[in-house]
Write a protein that binds this DNA or RNA. Structure first.
Lengths: 337, 337
DNA sequence: CTGTTAGCGCATTCAA
DNA sequence: TTGAATGCGCTAACAG
């Protein structure tokens, strides 16, 4: 049997006073007599009264929720980000709704739709690798739901975003490898949709130039991030006439897959072939032979900053203030293992 | 400027018909004339009308949200679980609200409070390691919010739960080690609050007995799961008169920490000292020398099952049906690497 | 086939 | 100091 939850109406009825008096008493409104106030509070306590937030949300047109859309929670990178998001949101009395796109555009669209239905106060998005257009986000504007893209930020004007520039760290990575004596440095890049903003490749090229190394297109392969694709990329690099002695990879997962594969081919990691990658996942600290170095992209921090920005936008919205598009670019950091 | 969102009222006004007609038309109610229906739908389309779910939720006394409370999203184990939760929930038109306790009881309480405020339709919980009593969950009963505990399930009667029994796998682990020739097998257990249900230790003891090995209390240490604590535990085990040649650890993280430390002490993993652990985290596949074996606890699956159970409870609740306490115990599986 | 009305729980304006 | 009345957006019972 559905028990009826206590409401202010119920309290009012029992005390033979009006609903509004109860409401005010519970809010410590100054114009309520001490006696009445105490009575009300006491009964509320006894009945275990909790205001029905859904009613309040409904009335206020606010839900105190923010939606988070990202590819996959199982990747440590994103779970770190969402950890930062949840913490920041929670400390501001917001709560996070989550949706995983699984890098599937249709699912992403459906999630955004659901978030819209739930009237989230704002949305944080790290786009799927299939995402090109932003039509499914445009509509949110009409509903006054601010959107902040983070980490995987689409290359579009007129958006709010928080991401991490990899340009300088990419150059630092090349500097590091060159100092280690490497001259032939390969590169396994990721899907083109994810490459635009972060300037990994640009940094790679700039780093080579800075070190007077000619860019060899045969040393640049790409992976769709699947194990298979990474293996193929590595295979091609290893088959190159002047096989690279070091390889920069899109992220640690690609590096890990590549290393696993390299070991199968009887190559000694960090001897026959070295790796430098991006993400600096905590798990790499447990490896006997981790990538020589990895670029820390501060996913947790990105989550925090993105949430802070989003909360600011939400506040501005409620004050009907206009906020110019803001793009927070964090620095990255080459971490040597 | 806050734009006003379209409502059925607005549509009704423009079409000079009544609100309820609009409502019915949008719901394909049979008693609405085709013409009217088309008109309404057309205008709704044009105005980009979306029903205000918060109003509907409010009216229905349902939110189509489920809360998820767990220690930490950054642990792959839990992020796998939540991945399963999110998927299952989403496929049933539910959305997940998340809260991390960070193994802090007070935070856990506050999160539960928040979930209650948000009137989630149900709650999934993996308790913090500080959690002993369940008072902060009891109150949810009054609000008719069903709770399903998963993975870290408190040892209490009258709860719904989904967890994974480790007893048989623990025995299998010992069998496995014995077959490998190990006779002195140590054990690093976790915090006592997390040990009750899963029967890791019981399995360890049973396994030893089964193999006619005397249980040596000096070979049983415990860790609070921090790096330091694990190191201390390992140190003690290594200092034991008859140092163990193999160690079973509470989970892969403990094993990884222990292995890292063992390497520092110049011990060869899987030669001087071998490890078997629990969780079977995907990351271990990337290790050159992973634990010899690890017990798969199917966190994703647990998340799915827990969500399914919760959704069933929610449905039963709305039908005012009574459901007996259900405790789903999944099997685990020793995976040899 | 369509309109009128009430009400979900609460905050709030206007009266008293 | 308190009460009555209104409305947020929507659904559904009731009335034509």
């Amino acid at each position: 049997m559905e028990k009826k939850l206590p409401t202010i109406k119920e309290i009012a009825r029992r005390l033979n006073i009006s609903i509004s008096t109860v409401s005010r008493a519970l809010h410590d409104h100054p114009s309520i007599g001490l006696r009445t106030k105490m009575q009300v509070k006491k009964l509320a306590q006894e009945l275990n009264y909790i205001p029905n937030q859904t009613a309040i949300f409904f009335k206020q047109g606010k839900t105190f929720t923010i939606g988070v859309v990202l590819p996959n929670l199982r990747e440590e990178y994103f779970s770190s980000a969402i950890s930062g998001i949840e913490e920041t949101a929670f400390d501001s009395e917001y709560i996070a709704l989550i949706g995983q796109s699984h890098d599937d555009l249709n699912r992403e669209k459906k999630i955004v739709e659901t978030m819209k239905k739930h009237r989230v106060d704002g949305l944080l998005v790290s786009v799927s690798k299939e995402t090109r257009g932003l039509e499914h986000f445009e509509e949110l504007k009409q509903y006054n739901i601010p959107v902040v893209f983070f980490d995987r930020v689409p290359d579009a004007p007129d958006i709010h975003s928080v991401w991490c520039s990899l340009y300088h760290s990419s150059i630092a990575a090349i500097d590091f490898l060159v100092k280690k004596g490497h001259k032939r440095i390969g590169y396994i890049q990721g899907p083109s949709t994810l490459n635009i903003k972060n300037e990994r490749l640009q940094g790679y090229v700039a780093g080579l130039k800075k070190n007077k190394i000619v860019v060899d297109e045969l040393l640049i392969e790409s992976s769709d991030l699947s194990l298979n694709s990474t293996q193929q990329a590595l295979d091609k690099l290893l088959a190159a006439k002047n096989r690279p002695t070091a390889i920069v990879t899109f992220n640690d997962y690609v590096a890990l897959d590549a290393m696993k594969f390299a070991r199968k081919k009887k190559l000694k990691i960090n001897k026959d072939i070295s790796f430098v990658s991006y993400a600096n996942l905590p798990v790499t600290t447990y490896l006997e032979t981790p990538p020589l170095a990895s670029v820390e992209q501060f996913p947790f921090e990105q989550g925090v900053r993105a949430t802070e920005l989003l909360l600011r936008l939400i506040k501005a919205k409620s004050l009907s203030e206009n906020v110019p598009y803001e793009n927070v670019v964090l620095g990255s950091e080459l971490v040597i293992h």
